[in-house]
Design a protein around this nucleic acid. Structure first.
Lengths: 202, 202
DNA sequence: GTCTATATACTGATAGAC
DNA sequence: GTCTATCAGTATATAGAC
């Protein structure tokens, strides 16, 4: 997010609001079709703009998608709290995040479709998801290490392995939940997994 | 697969071979781009055919994709053996399947991208994946129930929950593996999870 | 069985008026 | 800031010759 010194509030605030409307609409569109199927015309239509008009705010499809991902990351970070909590607190936060996700199907759809597309090597999002994955693994591993240092982790459990299994489970549960929303309780599955790795009550 | 009585072998065998060539090429194309980005022209080019020529063998994009999914299901079934093994044998088979997958990145890509697209309600594959999911859950749940009946499952573990966690883990690990092939040992993660639910050596 | 040619429909992006 | 008009590219599918 860049700020302008020369246009501090008035017109800028209006443009900013407009840009947020566009991002909201883009979330709807990319959730329902992913990057490849989602079209700028569709996004534009939802905010009462022509496609060319939309391109005035975001000069390309990629730049719009980038804004969507930034918005989603900011949303998740805000949910977990800043600075990101450590140890068991982070693990508890991830369970609460799963509960939150289950109340926002759109967010889950967005994550599932974009992260799958992002695994493909020549997808515009590939680099973003590779980097994000590295970062998330690092943070979750640190949480398990902190738990281990506090004697809260079962003996023989490797922190990085536990972190990877946890994150894979989170991702896989989201796919499964989209296929069977009433049959899958994402947070409960995560809690059970975490409990099986810990020596204390989560 | 329909067979013809009037053309028992010669020309039919040739056509059958051609159709398999096409399916192989389609796996490559849909692996790399999913349903929406994968194009018939691309598939056709890989087997030295024009796009219209390809449509002679599979009259629509959907029919070709259907053939691809059938081929993949048959492949997995053949790997696990028929009839599908029961109890611990099935669980061991799923671990071996993960090892097999790790030697076929293309299969993993195909599964990850198509199953993500298939979660979207209006995707042509949605019905297929919903049905497949139900079926797979049923089989895996039965395997855990069999293990429980043999006293091989830890007390307090619900068979269906264990099955769902296992399958979510399998799916999530594939996404993760595509982002970091050297850092993720899918089979090892599955084995650890299963071992944590069982009273006997897997 | 395979081709060329074509119909029809979208796509993202640009040019330039207002 | 938003529009219309347009360009160049892509897609699936069909018609009909060979």
């Amino acid at each position: 997010m860049t700020t302008s010194i020369r246009r501090p509030r008035g017109p800028y605030a209006k443009t900013s609001r407009r840009r947020q409307e566009i991002v909201d609409a883009a979330v709807e569109v990319f959730s329902a079709g992913g990057y490849h199927k989602g079209s700028l015309r569709d996004v534009a239509g939802r905010v009462g703009l022509s496609q060319a008009g939309l391109l005035h705010h975001y000069p390309s499809k990629d730049s719009l998608l980038e804004a969507v991902l930034k918005w989603r990351d900011d949303d998740a970070t805000a949910f977990l709290g800043e600075p990101v909590p450590e140890g068991l607190e982070l693990l508890r936060g991830l369970v609460r995040l799963a509960e939150y996700n289950a109340s926002s199907p759109e967010l889950v759809e967005l994550h599932v479709i974009l992260s799958a597309e992002g695994t493909l090597p020549d997808h515009p999002l590939h680099g973003y998801f590779v980097g994000r994955h590295r970062n998330v693994i690092k943070i979750a591993t640190a949480a398990f290490q902190r738990a281990a240092a506090n004697g809260q982790l079962k003996p023989g459990v490797d922190s990085e392995d536990a972190a990877r299994s946890l994150l894979a489970l989170m991702d896989g549960l989201q796919v499964m939940w989209l296929l069977d929303r009433d049959g899958v309780d994402m947070a409960a599955h995560l809690r059970r997994y975490l409990q099986s790795q810990l020596t204390v009550e989560l």
